[in-house]
Structure formats: structure tokens, C-alpha cells
Design a protein around this nucleic acid. Structure first.
Lengths: 143, 143
DNA sequence: TATTGTTATACTCTATAACTATA
DNA sequence: TATAGTTATAGAGTATAACAATA
């Protein structure tokens, strides 16, 4: 049988998910980075600092990413009312549309893949992943 | 409890693995893309076309990536003896050293994370992931 | 004709360092 | 002083289209 080890399995799975995400992004004429930004904003506006942490990006990189998304009409900078230095990034209507489109297609592709597993194995896998993520950083799960 | 769904769990796990890989790459002064290239070559030279498929890159993108890795002394282009159009990309000694260093650190980080699970749950997770990948594309597992 | 890989070009992505403005 | 974000700059990553050489 296939014996590729725990870590290798996670790495290969990660590549597969990345490729799925990239393909879906391109179908909607988005770069994977832009699509990821949009999906992070789906639950509401987020400040630059928090976005930087979530995306693992330097603040200047995020400025550029945001600039390009803004230029394409996907997001807007909203002034933070409590801190005049800060701003929050919000989706435009077009941004919301694309964010949902990408999100749904990615989820559909992965759920479809999950159909290969018995419901029980699928639930076990989800629970194990959640436990792993919780131990690495609870923030990965919460949100 | 946390109920983030199957697809979401896979996406979050993928982000975590990516970030782990990026961090390790940077510790060795490599971009994630270069590190991934090196790790793919660890079992021996590979042709550009096959590399392109594995990395999901257009051939011209791969030419550039290879050029930069070659300029840094990490890989070399070896002529293909059976096809004078083709070449195979091989690791240099320095490339081998870095490829193993990155590979081992990433595996260590992920195995360490896996310590959170009981051996049984860990084996189940690995088996489920392998089954998912096999159904998506057996080449993801074989190699 | 089809395939392998490169070149030319134009963007996008990313980090570092220096900066402005507010806290 | 510290934090939030931008600007300037340089390099890396990527795709499209056109190309050369070989199969």
C-alpha cells in the first residue's frame, strides 16, 4: 500500500488545496492572493494589521495587494472611527459577489472530494484537523 | 464545539502548512517557490514539462524559476540524452543540502504537530488523506 | 504537425527601509 | 515612544504570445 507518512500526506494535501484554489481564482479572473483577500473579508471589514497577520504578509505587501484590489473595484478602505491612523478593508458589491463565488466553488470541489470517504471517516478527519489547528493556534479555528 | 466543516478544515490546514513551509524556506534564505522546486528534485533530475505539471506552472514561468535557481547555484540543466530538445533539472551539491534541510524541518514541524493526536487517529488521518488524494489524482500519492 | 523549451513583455507579489500621522 | 499605514525601491513570481529547434 501507499505509505507516504503523516507529514508528507499533509504537504500533498496542501498542494492539492492550493491548486484547487488557484484554478477557481483564475476562472474568476482573480489572482489567488486577491481571492484569498476577498474570502477573508467575507464576514465583514478587517483592519490592515489583522489582515497582515492572517495572510502572513508584511504591511507594505498588503498595501500593494489592497491597492490593486481597490483599483479593480473589489474592496474599499473605510476609515476607522476609533483610530484616525487606521482603516478597515471592506468588500464592494462586486467584491462580495466574487468572494462568494470563489468560496462556494472551492467548498464544492473539496466537499465533492470528501464524498470519497465514509461519513464517519470524514467526520473523524475533520475533528483531527481541528485538533491539530487548535494546538498550533486556536485563532486558526475560531474566526 | 468548533464546527467549521470539512472543506473549511482542509483550507485552514492548507494555510497552516503553507505558512510553515514559507517560514522554513525563509530561514534558509529561499523563496517558497525555490524551496518547493528543490524538494521536488530530491529524488533525482526531472524534465521541465513534468516539473511544470507538478508545480502547476506555465513553462515560461518555470524557465524563469529555474534560471534564478541556477544563478544561485542550486540546480543545473542537464541535457536529455534521448531528446535533444529537452533538458532535465538536477540539484547541485548546495541544492541537495538545502533541499534536505528544508524537507527535514518541515517534516519535523508537522510531525511535531501530529503528536497532538493519538497514534490511531494520526494513522486514520493519514489514510483518509491518501484516499482523498488517490481519488483526485493517483499521481499525487505515487511519486 | 506536435512537442520542448526559451524570449519578450507586462503585470502581480513580496520584502526592506524610510517615512507620515496618530496614539 | 509605539503603532497604523504608506511610499520608494528592487527583486521574484507568473502568464500570454511569439519563437526556435527537434520529434
Amino acid at each position: 500500500m501507499e505509505d507516504i507518512g503523516f507529514a508528507t500526506a499533509l504537504v500533498r494535501l496542501s498542494h492539492f488545496v492550493q491548486h484547487t484554489f488557484s484554478d477557481v481564482s483564475r476562472e474568476h479572473e482573480l489572482t489567488p492572493q486577491q481571492a484569498q483577500l476577498l474570502c477573508l473579508l467575507i464576514d465583514g471589514p478587517v483592519g490592515m494589521s489583522e489582515l497582515g497577520r492572517a495572510l502572513h504578509l508584511e504591511k507594505s505587501s498588503l498595501t500593494g495587494l489592497t491597492d490593486r484590489a481597490q483599483r479593480r473595484g473589489l474592496v474599499a478602505r473605510v476609515p476607522d472611527e476609533n483610530d484616525r491612523r487606521a482603516c478597515r478593508i471592506a468588500l464592494t458589491d462586486e467584491g462580495v459577489r466574487l468572494a462568494w463565488a470563489v468560496h462556494e466553488k472551492v467548498v464544492a470541489a473539496l466537499e465533492n472530494l470528501g464524498g470519497e470517504l465514509k461519513p464517519e471517516a470524514r467526520a473523524d478527519l475533520t475533528a483531527s484537523v481541528v485538533r491539530l489547528l487548535m494546538s498550533a493556534d486556536p485563532a486558526l479555528v475560531r474566526r
